[in-house]
Every structure is written in C-alpha cells, then in structure tokens.
Simulated scan of single mutants.
Amino acid sequence: MREEIFQYVKKKYKTSPDYPFRTAPTYPVLRHADSRKWFALIMDIPREKLGLTGTEYVDIINVKLGDPMLADMLVRQPGYFYGYHISRSSWISILLDGTVPFEEICRWIDESYAVTASRQKKRKIRPPKEWIIPANPKYYDIVHAFDDVREIDWKQGRGIKAGDTVFIYVGAPVSAILYKCRVTETDIPYEYSDRDLTITAVMKIRLQKRYEPDRFTFEKLKEDYGIYAVRGPRGIPEELREALR
C-alpha cells in the first residue's frame, strides 16, 4: 500500500517521499512543498507495539486530524490507533494491511494535509467543513430567528469559511440542535461589545433544515455521540454527521 499512497500524493499534491532518519531508513515522510512540514509519516513496526497479536512487522501511516474528538472516535474502530511515537495533538496511526480501505486512508491523508498546511494554503485548499456552533437564547432569540427570513448574520466562528455547514446548538432551556445552515459569506466587519460579548466580525448563514427540539438533545449528543459540551465551533463525529443528514 506504500506505493499506492506515494502515487496518490504525487498525483494530487505533487509530493514525493523523503527518508530523513538515519536510524530508520525505511520510514518515509510526506511534506508540504512550501513549509516542509510533515503531513504523513509511514513506519514499519512489530504488531505487538500496537497491542496486536503476533511479532511480525506491519506498515502504519501517521496522520494528523483537526478534531481531537474525531480521533477519539476513530481509534475505537479496527485498524486505527492513537499516534505511535507521535502522541501530541490529534495524530493517529492507521494500519496499511488492508484493514482500513485505501479510499478511507486517502481521506485522512487529505485531512492531515489540510490541517498541517500553512495559514495561507489552508484557506485555499480546505474543502467545505461541517461544524456545531453554540447559540445562547439568553442573548438572542435564536428559536425564532428564521421565522420570517432564511438568512441571518451570526458571529464569525474561528476557522469557518464560506461554503461550510453549521449546525446550531441552542443552549438551555432548549439544549438541542435546531438548525442546519450554509455559510454564504464570512469576515464581514462588525463592532459590538458589552460585558458578556464582543463581536468584531460576522458571517451570513442561510437556513437549510430544521430539527425538532427533541431530536438532537444534549442528552442524546452526550450519550450517543460523546459530545459533552458545545462552547465554541467544533467538528462533528462521523456517526452524528450521518444522523444529521
């Protein structure tokens, strides 16, 4: 599978592997051409190092994800592990023995490439993303925000860009996801400040779908999807993404 990966990144990112480790000459690194920052590392290690049975060597690829919660969800699946020898942040290791389909591995290589890219490159290459964002009904009547219009201004979320999808989680007493919206414009200058809130930019969001208040409650998010808080823009676990669709 190494060669398949090399062909994939060569075609998509015009990247070739290099072998920087004298003590581990079989470990190829895949880097960004501009920053030389890693976005993937392939290693061959004994299966027992991953807690698997057997002593034979197996290839793994280390990639970085943008959401620690997503990493926690993936490592529960066969073929996925917390990053071997790269325990910081959200690095994971994926078996290259066929346990995880090649197309799925390519998806996480793409994710790692986007997450580790320079700031300038990130804005150019990142595909549309889905987020959960919080709304406090104490400060804004979000429950009735879309009664008469389909598009509203909302506080700019860090990392969110036009084309992304946001699922609005409304805080207590509602405590549930109520809306799916598409981000149509971002980084609109705006000045507002009080004791509880400061806004320097807003984005425009357009309503796409409503959810019943009892469908995606906080209790369901916690018990079924491992989401214990929504304090700011955050990624969405795959199982929840499918349910929201």
Rank of each mutant, 00 (worst) to 15 (best):
V100E: 08
V143R: 09
D148K: 08
W91T: 05
E104M: 10
A114D: 13
I94G: 13
Y82K: 13
E151H: 05
A145G: 06
V143T: 11
G98Y: 02
F146W: 05
T116S: 13
R119L: 11
V143K: 12
A162V: 03
V75W: 04
D164S: 02
V75D: 03
A117P: 08
R119T: 12
A145I: 03
L96S: 04
G157K: 01
K124Q: 15
V115A: 06
P173K: 02
G83R: 04
A145S: 10
F81D: 10
I152G: 12
P137A: 07
A145C: 02
I109C: 07
P101V: 05
F81I: 08
P137D: 10
R76W: 01
Y139G: 13
K129W: 09
W131M: 04
K129I: 14
D141C: 05
D153P: 10
F102R: 02
S90D: 11
W131D: 09
R76I: 10
S93M: 05
P134H: 05
L74P: 02
D97V: 09
R150N: 14
R107P: 02
R123Q: 15
Q156K: 10
V170I: 12
T116N: 14
F167T: 02
D141T: 04
R150A: 13
F146T: 04
S112M: 09
I109G: 10
E104C: 07
Y80H: 05
V100C: 08
T99F: 07
Y84Q: 06
D153H: 11
L95Q: 05
G83F: 09
S87A: 12
I160G: 04
P137I: 04
T165Y: 03
S90N: 11
K129P: 04
D147H: 09
H144M: 00
R88I: 07
K155G: 08
V115T: 15
K122C: 13
K161C: 14
Y140P: 01
L95M: 09
I86V: 13
D110Y: 07
E111F: 08
V166T: 12
R107S: 12
S93K: 08
I109V: 14
K122Y: 15
F102G: 02
Y113M: 11
A135Q: 00
I168E: 06
S90Q: 06
A172E: 09
Y113P: 07
H85P: 00
K124S: 13
Q120K: 15
K124P: 08
L74I: 06
P78Q: 04
I160A: 06
F81L: 02
E104Y: 12
A135T: 00
D141F: 10
A162E: 15
R150L: 14
M73L: 12
D147Q: 03
F167A: 06
D141G: 09
L96T: 00
F167M: 01
